[in-house]
Structures are given as C-alpha cells and as structure tokens.
Design a protein around this nucleic acid. Structure first.
Lengths: 351, 351
DNA sequence: CCGCACTCCGGACACGTGTCTGCTTCCTTC
DNA sequence: GAAGGAAGCAGACACGTGTCCGGAGTGCGG
C-alpha cells in the first residue's frame, strides 16, 4: 500500500507505461488521441493517469516541436490598475487560444535578456505593455522582425517599424479640454503634464491643439508648476501642485490632471483649503480608475478602453502568425470621456 | 549584405557554429564557460552571439536537465492592489534567485490543469496566492507532496498538510476593535463581514474575541446588514450598507469594514447624508491600500505587510528545496494598524 | 628532430517525446 | 480450421543540447 502511492518515481512515459502494463507507444497514442486503440485500453490509461497524475515532460514535447504555443509578455510595471487589467485580460485571452504566457516585469536595460529568454522558449509572439526606453525597444522590435517572431506594442506608438496599438491620448485631451471650454473655462492649471515621456507629451499636444483650434493661445491660457514640486508619489504631487496653484494671485479655474492620482490629490488639497470642487474650481483626471467613483465629488476622467485595446492587439498578433508583413501596423484607440461631478461651470467671478 | 542579416535560419548551436566557423562542441564550451578555449576564440563567439542574438533552445537545455529552475505561481485574481503587490514582489525575488516564473490566474476547478502544466514544465516549486476552494487546494497540496515538489500557500491557512504563510486577520481585528473600544465605541456596524470565506470568518472571529475579552456580548454590540444588500461592487455595497445603518433608529457609532473599498463607499454615503466622519460616526477599513490616503478624511486601516509575507514564503520554499519535510509549516504574519482620520472618539450623545 | 602542451574537431551518447514501420498476438468470422 | 482484421508491441529516428573522448593540428622548448 505505501509503495503504490510513491508516484514520484514515474518520470517518463516509459515509466508510466510500465506502471500501466502497456507499451510506451500505445500510451503515447492514447495521450495524443490517435485512433486504433481499444476503448477499454484507453480507459485503463486514463484511470492510471488520474491516479498517478502523470504528465509528459513539456520540454521533451516542446523540443519535438509539438508543444503549446508560447507568448512572452513584457510589462513596464504592475503599479497601476489599468496596467494590471490589460495584463490579466491579455493572459486570459491568450490562454483561451492555447498559448502559454511568460510574463516578465522589466527594468530599463533588461529587455534584451528577457526577449532572449522568450526566444529560447520558442515564443511565437512577444507583447510589450507600457512605455519603455524608445531606442532599446526599437532594437528589440528589429531583432524580433529578423527572427520572424510576431510582436505588438501596447501603449507605445512612434517606434519605427513596430506594430502597435495605443490609446489616442491627444484625442482624449481634446475631449477633456472641449468639455471644460464648453463649461466656460479659459485658464487651466496643468498637473504633471511636464514630463518627457512620450505618453505625457501626447497629452500635452492634445491640450495645445484643442486650445489653438478655438483660437486661444496655449501659453496665455495654461500654466504648469510641475518644476516647483518633487514628484515621487503622484498623489502627494497633485496635492502640492494644487496648493501652489491656489496660492497664485489669479488661480486657474480648472486643473487638468495627467492621471487620476494627481487629480484626486489636488481635490483633497483644495478641499482642505476650503475651495469647493467644482463650484470654485474644476478638476479632471485620466484613466478612469475605480477610485474615480470612490471620491467625493467623483472624478471626471478619460476611459482607456482596455478591452478594445486588447482585442485589437490580439487581432494584430493573429495576422502576424498567419503571415508576417514588413509593413508595420499602427492602430489607435478612440478615447471616451466620462463627465462626473469634479468638473462644472466656471465660477461667475472669474474671467 | 541582405543575406548576412538573415539570422532567422540559425536555429541550433550547429547552425550557429557553422556561422562562426567552429565546431559545435567548441561553441558549447564557450557558451557554458568551460576552460580550455583560447581567449581570441571566446571573443569571436561572443561577437557572433552579439550579432545574431542566438540563444540555445531552452527546451533542449531543460530536457537535458540543466535548465533554469522553474516556479509556478497560482493567483486567485489580479483585482486588488495587495494581491498584485505580492505577485510583483515574489516574481522579482524569485527571478533574482534564478527562477523562471510561470504565472496563472485560476478560476475554480482549473487548479488541477494548471498544476499539471507546472509539473510538465518541471517546476520545483508552486506558490498559491489568495484564497481557493479548500477541498480543491488540499488535493493539489497532497499531489505536490507526493511528487516532492515544494509548495507554499500565501493568505490561506487551515489547509491540512499545507505549508502556509498568512496574515493574522483575527489578530488584526483585535487591533481595530481595541482601537475603537478605547475611543469609547460600544455599538458596531459590520460591513461585509458576513461572508462564508475563511478570510472573512477569521476577521469576524477576531471581532467577537475582542469584544468578549472586554466582557461585552458580541450579539448585543454588533450588527450586520449584509443580507439586505446585493454585493457586486464592494464600493457600492459599502455605500448601500452605510445608508441602511444610518436609517436605523439607533445607528452604530462605528462602522467596521471588511476591506478599504466598503469603508470608503460607506464614508461617501455618510457624507452625502450629512453625517461627518469621524465626528458623528467612525469608519475603519482593511488592507491599507493607497486609496486610504486619497480620501477625505483618510482611512484608518490594517496593513497586510506584503514584504514580510513574501520574505517568509521564500524562506519556506528554500527550506523545502533543501530538504522536504512531512511536517507542514504554518507561519502567521503579525498585523499592524494605521490609525488615521476616519476613526475618532465616540460622540457625546451616544451611549 | 622529438616531445609536449594547448586548441580544436568530429563522433558519440543521453535526455523524453511523438511518430513511423514492421511484426506479433488475439479475436472474429466464415 | 483458415483468413483477415484489429490491437498492441518493439525498434527506430528526430528534435537540440551538454558533455565525454579520442584524435588531429599547431606552436614551443629542448
């Protein structure tokens, strides 16, 4: 009895076949669903499979070339909810399509090693989620192209030769600015928009475009105090910026946040200083995270459309798996704005 | 020139060796750092390695038994920040120790398939993070023991035979209750504590223990309205519960939340109804997520000690990798409470 | 010129699997 | 009892790698 429970010694189909009392080839036929095996034999194998929990060595199967398809996922980080949501959804969908996912969180400079690891695991697709060092990522893309491995960049456009699907951040800021302009606002404080990262610059471009489209000079109607405050935690950063804006002689009537965290930090600071949102001043966020609904007032924000993004990324991958194209494919996701309580009409007293 | 760039045809060390102009065995020596190779030859190989980006097939290496160690991580979900934080930290630490991590998010009933996959990948350790169906997880643990694969359960104790490290939720509620009792509170509304999951029952046990330790009858001093409201989104759930409590003839003076979301939902509902927190009523959360600091007033909560948890889990794994023990190891993490603005002295008018 | 150390080559094996082929065994059917 | 088909067996090969081994080539010192 104790000995029959020691299944640790079964380390190969040969061992397992011995245990069942069949030839290795016959067991292999059953495992791979080949015809020409008696029903009773199939059941015998399956029973033994159930008892021992034996599983063929994935390395040997993969070596033979018949293994499960592998996809590598590179993450910038796991710090923000939208980031995690994209990962979770992507992994779920890929698994449904028979992919095994390798997930790695990268620091700058590690991409080469990680992609080589994916390559060693015979990955047929590599997905990058988030923003990486452009020169580095461009090189990875070039390498993947040379090796004819499918790739998609999520949330990072403007990489030469890369297939990408990314959110139209400039267009999103058009929506936010038009919303605020329609409410009568003309002076805007920008929270965290002064950052060299491409994703932020896209937002800033959207802001200036929206203003000039209405004949307003961005320089005259916007103001940024980012350089005056340290940015370690976005929440406290927004808090400090809002304080600084409120202390100005002529504070802006609307604060436009680069993300939800700075917006919420700003709202709290304003409330502490006795300035009602949105009666005295409006605030907008970006990303439409769950917290936007958990504050009082809740936060006007922009939805990233995670599901649509992932679906399109999967389409791109599928196309490449069929036939790889030299022409990079770039897709943009159309943004949606959710107007909530934190944005309201411009107060009377202001211009 | 175009031909020299087609490195896609190099699919094995043999191909690569041909490209460099060396024997396969010599290249292999270089790749594995063996002695007896001239410095100039080593450099030649490394240059070619740089150019082509060639990497040995991980399946073949793994088949030979010399591959990187593999660890499988089973996640309950990726929905809450503490959950993601644990995953991120664990993966980072494991990678530093030379492990390749396989990460899977499980639905109920999938554990068998996933663990078999890990086994097929020759995983030497499997980590479960979160709460799973007890009977199912117990069976997985038993199987892993039989196969002499190391395992650790994070956040789920009380599984027979399992090694686990989990947060002392009962002890955490002692801290919260003593904090509120010291502030003079005697009537408590429980938010979301009426749930069959073990993690929640532990919390509830802590509450009743803390009360009886002070000679108070839990039945007389606590009240739950969970059964009256649907629970889909914790935030709106907390909101609805707080409304219901506030409408009672004698509302409790403190609301004790099962997590931060319900606490924050409750706080917003109270504010909407004109009840100041904590002047009119106190509210506490659980998990100490970042949002706790992003609300006004910010939220008294309990810290899960993610880092300590992960470090201990790694210790447990390391012990098992050296020598596997029949005796299950169970570790508890001592909780810490962070008192913030949402909890204050009991109002005068109340008993 | 010989011997020796140092490099490198080419061949061989093992790892565990899927699959092909030829062969044996057994059962069914007439 | 013979024919024939179905089922299973045994052997072989390939996949790509790490490693061991004997042998060949080169350069150096004596």
């Amino acid at each position: 009895m104790p000995h029959t429970r020691d299944f640790g010694s079964i380390r190969s189909t040969a061992d397992f076949a011995r245990y069942v009392g069949l030839a290795r080839t016959t067991v292999s036929r059953v495992l791979n669903g080949h015809p020409g095996v008696k029903r009773s034999t199939i059941e015998r194998v399956q029973r033994a499979l159930e008892q021992t929990g034996f599983t063929p060595n994935a390395f040997a199967v993969g070596l033979r070339g018949k293994g499960a398809a592998v996809a590598g996922i590179c993450m910038e980080n796991l710090l923000t909810p939208p980031m995690v949501a994209k990962l979770a959804l992507l992994q779920k969908r890929l698994r449904a399509r028979g992919f095994t996912c390798l997930i790695e969180v990268l620091a700058a400079g590690e991409s080469r090693k990680v992609v080589q690891h994916f390559q060693a695991m015979q990955a047929s697709a590599v997905i990058f989620i988030g923003h990486f060092v452009p020169a580095e990522i461009a090189q990875r893309v070039a390498e993947l192209r040379r090796r004819k491995i499918a790739h998609v960049l999520i949330d990072q456009a403007n990489i030469a030769g890369a297939n990408s699907v990314s959110f139209d951040r400039a267009g999103a800021m058009h929506l936010v600015m038009n919303h605020l302009l329609d409410l009568g606002h003309r002076s805007f404080g920008l929270l965290g928009m002064d950052h060299p990262e491409q994703q932020t610059r896209d937002r800033l471009r959207g802001i200036t475009e929206a203003l000039t489209a209405r004949g307003l000079d961005p320089a005259a109607h916007t103001r940024s105090l980012d350089h005056l405050e340290p940015r370690d935690n976005d929440f406290t950063f927004g808090r400090a910026l809002a304080r600084a804006f409120a202390r100005l002689e002529k504070p802006p009537t609307a604060l436009v946040g680069v993300n939800d965290e700075v917006a919420i930090g700003a709202m709290l600071a304003l409330e502490e200083m006795g300035m009602k949102v949105p009666d005295a001043i409006s605030v907008t966020g970006f990303n439409n995270q769950d917290i936007c609904q958990m504050t009082s007032p809740n936060v006007t924000s922009v939805d990233q459309q995670v599901e649509a993004t992932i679906e399109i990324a999967l389409d791109l991958l599928e196309e490449q798996l069929e036939q790889i194209s030299d022409q990079p494919v770039v897709r943009m996701i159309r943004p949606t704005m959710i107007a909530r309580q934190s944005s309201g009409p411009v107060p009377r007293r202001a211009t």
